[in-house]
Simulated scan of single mutants.
Amino acid sequence: MAEAELVVEVSGPVATVVIHNPPRRNAMTPAMWRQLPPLLDEVEADPSVRALVLTGAGDTFCAGADLTDLDELLAAGDGSIAVAAEERLARFAKPTIAAVRGACVGGGCQLAVACDLRIAADDARFGVPPARLGLVYPAPTTRRLARLVGPSAAKHLLFTAELIDAERALRIGLADEVLPGERLAARVAEITATIAQRSPLSVAAAKEIVDDRAAPSRIAWWHRKVADTGEAREGITAVRERRAPGFAWTPPTA
């Protein structure tokens, strides 16, 4: 295993992407930012995968982005490789969960916010440090953060660059659940197992609509798919017969 890389593990219907750069507290290097979009393409195309978990190696999620090539970062602006990776993660067609331990700062927070859900250990710490570094946080990243936590909480994070603890993150909506560290893996496994049992069609449609990526024609397409695939008929029949549903629809691959 390379010292700094993204590692993919697939177990049943769940793919786990591990941010692995322990000497730098799992900081994202330029190579890792570039690795993420094609990696997500590959995982998304796997019909056996129903959910994706993003986490960090050891006891840290991700302490930020590697800023060694500052000139490249400043020249890129909103066109940076980090923003491209974040946007690809946000567009991932299947549910994504960030399992957060320890530091979730800068680029790490950027990735966590791009996930659908954030489940945090009680030792998690979240922060957005550009104001401490004299940088401008990318506009797509800033807007995504503000939609998630609200304008006031986003401004507090952006203006102060302070780290906040897991309980505060829970209060402002940056974390969805907080629990003792020893229970984090089991809870994430429970959530992903539940999602894997649900209708992939329902889940995919819900994600697009909640993220405001579904035009009226696309919403009409989803409703036609419900009728065409028989997913609703199978789900309702399974409830009546008190059995697990056999949802067969799989999302089309690009």
Rank of each mutant, 00 (worst) to 15 (best):
A4Y: 00
L6F: 01
V7G: 00
V10W: 01
S11P: 00
G12M: 02
A15Q: 07
A15W: 09
H20C: 11
P22G: 06
R25P: 00
N26R: 04
A27T: 12
T29H: 08
L36K: 12
E42V: 09
P47M: 11
P47G: 04
S48V: 14
R50Q: 13
A51T: 13
V53Q: 05
V53H: 04
L54V: 14
D59M: 12
T60M: 08
C62Q: 05
D66P: 08
L70Q: 10
D71F: 05
L74P: 11
A75S: 15
G77L: 08
S80G: 15
V83T: 07
A84P: 03
E86W: 00
E87G: 03
P95T: 10
A99N: 07
R101M: 09
R101K: 14
R101S: 09
R101V: 06
V105Y: 03
G106T: 00
G108M: 01
G108N: 05
L111N: 04
A112R: 03
A112D: 10
C115F: 13
L117K: 13
L117S: 12
I119Y: 11
A124L: 01
F126E: 02
F126W: 11
F126S: 00
P130H: 04
R132D: 06
R132N: 09
R132L: 11
V136W: 04
T141A: 15
R147C: 05
A154S: 12
H156K: 02
L158F: 04
L158E: 11
F159Y: 05
A161V: 08
E167H: 12
R168P: 01
R168D: 05
A169N: 03
L174G: 02
D176S: 09
D176W: 09
D176L: 07
V178Y: 10
G181E: 12
E182L: 09
L184T: 11
A186M: 09
E190S: 13
I191H: 00
A193K: 03
I195R: 00
Q197S: 07
P200E: 05
P200Y: 02
A206L: 15
K207L: 15
K207Y: 05
A214F: 11
A215D: 15
S217Q: 12
S217I: 00
A220W: 07
W221Q: 12
H223P: 00
K225Q: 15
A227G: 11
D228I: 03
T229S: 13
A232K: 10
R233G: 13
E234I: 09
G235K: 03
V239D: 01
P245F: 02
P251V: 09
